[in-house]
Computed example of a mutant assay.
Amino acid sequence: MKNNQWKRIVLKVGSALIAPERKGCSSRYLLHIAKFILQCRDQGIEVILVSSGSVAAGSHFFGNLENPSLAIKKAMAAAGQNEMMAAWDRFFDFPSAQILLTHGDLRDKERYDSVRETMFALLDNGILPIVNENDVVTTDELKVGDNDNLSAMVAAAADADSLIICSDIDGLYNKNPHTNTDAKLIKQVHNIDQSIYDMAGGAHSSVGTGGMKTKIEAAEKATSHGLSTYIINGFKESSFEQLILGNNPGTIFSPYDSPMKEDLHWMTHTAKAQGELVIEDGFDYPFDENSEQLTSNEISEVHGEFAVGDTILVRSEDGKHLAKAEANYSSCLLNFIATHDEEGDEFQHHTGPIISDKNIAYLDNSHEEAHK
Results as ranks from 00 to 15, higher is better:
119 M>W: 11
78 A>S: 12
174 N>K: 07
208 G>Y: 06
130 I>N: 00
57 A>F: 04
368 E>F: 13
160 A>Q: 13
291 S>E: 03
339 T>M: 11
316 S>W: 04
273 A>P: 15
250 G>K: 01
142 L>C: 02
299 I>V: 14
5 Q>L: 04
223 T>W: 02
38 L>T: 09
369 E>Y: 09
371 H>G: 14
343 E>D: 11
301 E>R: 15
93 D>R: 07
79 A>K: 15
48 I>Q: 05
259 P>Y: 03
289 E>A: 15
61 F>S: 01
365 N>C: 13
146 D>Y: 07
347 F>I: 07
369 E>I: 12
273 A>D: 08
113 D>S: 09
214 T>Y: 06
83 E>A: 13
287 F>L: 08
285 Y>F: 14
83 E>R: 11
291 S>K: 01
45 I>Q: 00
68 P>Q: 04
75 A>L: 11
189 V>M: 09
181 T>F: 08
349 H>S: 06
244 I>A: 12
124 D>W: 10
218 A>L: 07
246 G>S: 10
8 R>S: 06
190 H>I: 08
141 E>A: 11
76 M>I: 05
273 A>S: 15
296 S>H: 05
170 D>P: 03
364 D>F: 12
70 L>M: 06
300 S>V: 14
311 T>G: 15
276 E>D: 11
188 Q>C: 12
314 V>S: 02
250 G>T: 01
149 N>G: 12
100 L>E: 09
25 C>H: 01
108 D>S: 00
346 E>N: 10
227 L>F: 05
157 A>R: 06
173 Y>W: 12
62 F>S: 07
61 F>Q: 04
168 D>E: 09
26 S>R: 01
190 H>G: 11
235 F>S: 09
316 S>M: 02
343 E>K: 07
100 L>H: 08
99 I>K: 06
303 H>M: 14
225 H>Q: 10
352 G>E: 12
370 A>P: 04
78 A>G: 01
